[in-house]
């Protein structure tokens, strides 16, 4: 564990708390893509299958449980508790276009041909593009509530912070995980446009609005 990874994980935790806070205080999941949130459940469940077989640390296990539980809770908030505020008609990104290619990639690139390793690989590839339905929705509506942009910024910062973590681990432990690094770079890259608007507008006190 190093400071970059720890801050990345904290940022990931923060993003989830921000999202839950947004939904509960506004009593609405407007502006949140259900598809993105559903993909996150799939990401956590497929990645943390080792929860019962591999023990890394109490930290690791608790975080895994938290990520699975909180992502399921968010789906519950969206589909049951605040269902009327969820508008599927603007959440139109075709998720099957993400899952298919990721499944093929996972079958080609993995660290071993076992069910758990291929699913782990799938979860890494899927996570890298999971935000696309959300960004697509943002693009389509052209604006976002400020709290939603804080959620996205924290989520983007999480993967961005993993990059210095991998550089650090390469030099300190000789550790390299090419699948995570490649997917992580792609994932961070997807946020660049968003970050630009976030830093130049939202953090200057303006509303998040995309040029028409």
């Amino acid at each position: 564990m190093n400071i970059f990874r720890f801050l990345g994980d904290l940022s990931h935790l923060a993003s989830i708390f921000i999202l839950i806070h947004k939904i509960q205080t506004t009593r609405s999941c407007r502006g949140i893509s259900f598809k993105t949130q559903a993909v996150y459940v799939a990401v956590f469940v497929t990645r943390y299958l080792d929860l019962f077989t591999t023990f890394v640390s109490v930290y690791n296990t608790s975080m895994k449980i938290f990520f699975i539980a909180s992502s399921c809770y968010i789906l519950y908030l969206m589909k049951v508790r605040f269902r009327p505020t969820n508008d599927p008609s603007i959440d139109t990104f075709r998720v099957e276009y993400l899952v298919g290619p990721c499944a093929v990639l996972a079958l080609i690139f993995n660290y071993g041909y076992s069910v758990t390793e291929v699913l782990w690989s799938l979860s890494i590839f899927l996570e890298s593009v999971a935000i696309l339905p959300q960004l697509f929705m943002l693009q389509r509506t052209g604006e976002a509530e400020t709290i939603t942009t804080h959620y996205l910024a924290a989520l983007g910062a999480y993967r961005a912070l993993y990059i210095p973590n991998w550089i650090y681990r390469y030099f300190s432990e000789g550790y390299v995980d090419p699948i995570s690094v490649t997917a992580g770079l792609v994932q961070t890259g997807l946020y660049l446009d968003f970050f630009y608007v976030y830093f130049t507008k939202v953090l200057q006190g303006q509303k998040f609005e995309l040029p028409a």
Binding site: F67, Y111, N165
Partner: peptide, 10 residues
């Protein structure tokens, strides 16, 4: 490397 198959990152 990852020969051990243990993924210690989240």
């Amino acid at each position: 490397d990852l020969d051990s198959g243990i993924h210690d990152e989240l």
